[in-house]
Design a protein around this nucleic acid. Structure first.
Length: 334
DNA sequence: GTTCTAGAAC
DNA sequence: GTTCTAGAAC
């Protein structure tokens, strides 16, 4: 990972290190040598992302901080990339950022804490005990070292897990010539299935009007799963897609609305099923039919950070345990 | 996607 | 002190 440096273009001082993911607050003070009263002591917060190659610039002070000719604005945050110029306040005190890669000597470049062994990696596989995955593993190690790593990472990477699971007969609860249904490995409710097409479609973005019939069929199969569920009418169900799923391969969630599951653990889990991050299957079908593509709104990722609201009564809960406790009150008991 | 854990929140 | 979250590592 490179290191990030903030350079004073006016040569006021030596470069300031911006450690990855650690906010650095700058303003009037000895560090910048800025004495201008218009500049707050805490004028800007800078947070470098050395992997993605940008710095998040947040204006904390009242007077305007600029990135190139644009005002950031108090409380606002913008991504600044190399080549852009930051003016700490009032188009004064120009700065640029630079990402530096370690020298070939690799001095001070942090190493991974431990090497992941084959056993480690195998235990992360979706279905470690299937013949298929064992075999890929064996093929992989028989190659050269680097080749082996490449192979195992592409097929064994967690984001590819659904491709493995859907092929495993033990996981399949339904299949036909177009789709397969599996139980979600980490169900977020009492009933949680995934409908996957056999055809390899990485994500919603890859869907076009040629997939109209396929997504309709996926919905039909989803409805069929709901119908055969004995608790469908009491719990309620939703069928839909995550706007930006973590797992590759298009998958339709069929999930009961109790959200009673030990696998539901954090805000992202909750908001991904209870905000507009969850796109109803019907909406996907309609978008595809009318526009020939699925529109994913910009900034949906922000929805995952929203406070926790009950999906039934919209009460706000402060913590996940409090939410889970509250959810119990909505579960019908016989 | 999950797990792990540092440190924030209580 | 414990609980809980959020970010990094996997």
């Amino acid at each position: 990972m490179p290191t990030c440096w903030l350079l004073s273009d006016a040569g006021l001082h030596q470069p300031i290190h911006l450690p990855h993911s650690h906010p650095v607050i700058l303003g009037r003070g000895p560090e910048t040598t800025i004495k201008d009263k218009k500049c707050s002591r805490q004028q800007v917060e800078l947070k470098a992302d050395c992997n993605k190659g940008y710095v998040k610039v947040k204006q904390l002070g009242t007077n305007p901080t600029f990135i190139d000719s644009a005002v950031v604005g108090t409380g606002n945050e913008y991504k600044m990339k190399p080549g852009q110029q930051l003016y700490i306040v009032n188009r004064l005190y120009p700065y640029t950022i630079q990402f530096k890669y370690g020298s070939t000597g690799n001095h001070g470049v942090p190493k991974r804490p431990r090497d992941s062994t084959l056993e480690d990696r195998e235990s992360q596989l979706e279905a470690p005990k299937t013949k298929a995955s064992k075999q890929t593993e064996k093929v992989a190690v028989s190659g050269s070292h680097t080749e082996a790593k490449k192979t195992t990472e592409s097929v064994g990477h967690w984001s590819q897990g659904l491709k493995v699971s859907m092929q495993d007969p033990k996981m399949q609860v339904y299949k036909d010539d177009k789709v397969v249904v599996i139980k979600d490995k980490y169900p977020k409710a009492r009933y949680h299935w995934l409908v996957l097409p056999w055809q390899s479609i990485p994500s919603l973005k890859a869907l076009g009007s040629e997939h109209n019939d396929l997504v309709k069929h996926m919905q039909k199969v989803a409805d069929q799963m709901v119908r055969q569920c004995p608790d469908a009418s009491s719990l309620g169900f939703r069928t839909g897609y995550h706007a930006i799923p973590s797992m590759s391969h298009v998958h339709l969630h069929v999930i009961s609305q109790d959200f009673d599951s030990p696998c539901l653990k954090n805000k992202k889990h909750w908001n991904s099923f209870t905000t507009d991050y969850f796109i109803n299957s019907q909406d996907v079908i309609q978008m595809l039919e009318t526009n020939g593509r699925v529109a994913v709104k910009e900034g949906v990722t922000e929805l995952l950070k929203l406070p926790l609201f009950c999906h039934k009564c919209h009460k706000e809960l402060n913590t996940i345990p409090a939410l889970k406790d509250h959810l119990k009150s909505h579960i019908p008991h016989r």
